[in-house]
């Protein structure tokens, strides 16, 4: 048996995966990384927390929610840099003048050509622009075309403009008994009564497990009525209205 492949700066791939769990960035300039995802590098690279000094302008261009800029690091310099995240699968994606929304915990790194915004959906981040980004997933990622209904735990993100909404399976939830069943789990709940539904043109990214990756705080949203995740709007009815009772 031959030994494992040995890499040096010449043989490391440029902007590609080294193995399923490690991504190599050929750095000439700047990249944004989430804190603590760099595992090794060759060359001269400096790491700075964003949100101060000469990087301030960059932040203004790429981060539109300074509230969570503290979780990000700017890698600057020349060299090859290896990124990985808790031995999860990592993949790179190219965006060309497009947009992609991804679960906050899954995003690892992106080029400054992209700008990062908080999604209106709590816990998700949206990338807009042109460039490459790296995201982690628990198991390989599957691309699916809408219309599709997906399990909330398997959802990694979506590109372009499908419209995501909640979907409740009325077969289970119809009637008083169904409501009781869904709330308590008594009488057998399949665990699949609730899905996310996507319609419209675009792509939906799914991971091949229902094990979630740890969420990362995306920063709080301005506390005003009408903002999802903000203070609750005055309730119209009780929780029964959810089930059509």
């Amino acid at each position: 048996m031959s030994g494992p492949a040995v890499f040096d700066p010449q043989t490391l791939p440029a902007d590609d995966n080294v193995n399923a769990y490690t991504f190599c960035v050929d750095l000439h300039g700047q990249w944004f990384l989430q804190k603590g995802k760099m595992i090794a590098y060759y060359g001269r690279i400096s790491f700075d927390g964003v949100g101060h000094g000469r990087l301030d302008r960059l932040v203004a261009g790429s981060f539109h929610s300074p509230l969570h800029a503290a979780d990000w690091v700017v890698a600057e310099g020349e060299g090859k840099m290896l990124l990985a995240d808790r031995a999860f699968d990592v993949n790179s994606y190219d965006l060309e003048d497009g947009n992609l929304t991804v679960r906050s915990g899954n995003l690892l790194a992106f080029q400054p050509g992209l700008s990062l915004k908080q999604s209106v959906i709590p816990g998700f981040l949206t990338l807009i622009g042109t460039g490459k980004f790296v995201a982690a997933s628990n198991g390989p990622v599957i691309f699916a075309e809408p219309p599709i209904r997906v399990d909330p735990q398997a959802l990694v993100g979506w590109a372009d403009c499908p419209s995501p909404c909640h979907h409740y399976d009325h077969q289970y939830l119809r009637g008083v008994l169904g409501g009781v069943r869904a709330l308590t789990g008594l009488g057998g709940a399949s665990g699949e009564e609730h899905q996310f539904e996507f319609t419209g043109a675009g792509q939906v990214l799914l991971q091949s497990t229902e094990q979630l990756m740890a969420e990362r705080d995306t920063g709080s949203v301005p506390g005003q009525p009408g903002v999802p995740g903000g203070p609750p709007a005055p309730q119209q009815g009780g929780p029964q209205s959810r089930f059509g009772l």
Binding site: F7, D8, N19, T22, G36, I39, A40, Y42, L82, R86
Partner: peptide, 21 residues
Amino acid sequence: DGQAVVLRVSPRYPLQVDPGA
């Protein structure tokens, strides 16, 4: 934890590694 990457260090190319990795 996950498949390891083997990196060669030579006098021309020193390597920096995160202590946790």
